[in-house]
């Protein structure tokens, strides 16, 4: 796991960045989702990986025996996943409405708001 997770995180970042550079909106959404997962997994690895030693103080003892994984990053990821889920749901809805409204999902065609002489609504 110690080798595998960093490799997966790297792959996820690479995939995410590749996807958000694409012109299709759907791929951009997937890119953002994948980048979020990469960040979450990274926080997970930062908290150390251990097997079979939960971070609880045993009955009668005053401390935990090393090695144990830090439980805080796992709590952080839970929060980040929930927030990410909500925001991704909103983003997908927004992208769908955009597709319907602009009749295209090619990001290269969405340059009206950047042009000098186009008036704002």
């Amino acid at each position: 796991m110690r080798v595998l997770l960093p490799v997966i995180i790297g792959l996820l970042y690479a995939t995410g960045i590749y996807l958000i550079l694409r012109r299709s909106m759907v791929k951009v959404i997937f890119g953002l989702v994948v980048l979020g997962h990469a960040a979450n997994l990274m926080i997970f690895t930062v908290g150390r990986l251990t097997k079979g030693s939960p971070a609880f103080v045993p009955h009668g003892a005053t401390g935990i025996a090393e090695p144990f994984a830090d439980p805080l990053p796992q709590a952080l990821i839970l929060t980040a996943i929930v927030i990410g889920f909500g925001i991704q749901a909103f983003t997908i809805a927004l992208f769908k409405k955009t597709c319907q409204s602009l009749k295209t999902e090619d990001l290269d065609e969405m340059r009206n708001t950047d042009q000098l002489e186009k008036e704002s609504p």
Binding site: G16, I20, L32, A80, L94, T98, S101, L102, N112, T113
Partner: peptide, 20 residues
């Protein structure tokens, strides 16, 4: 919608970087 796509994408990217 068009402006929002740019705003949302770049701000979500920034959130992912923040988290990392």
């Amino acid at each position: 919608f068009e402006g929002a796509i740019k705003y949302v994408t770049l701000n979500l990217l920034s959130s992912a970087i923040f988290l990392a």
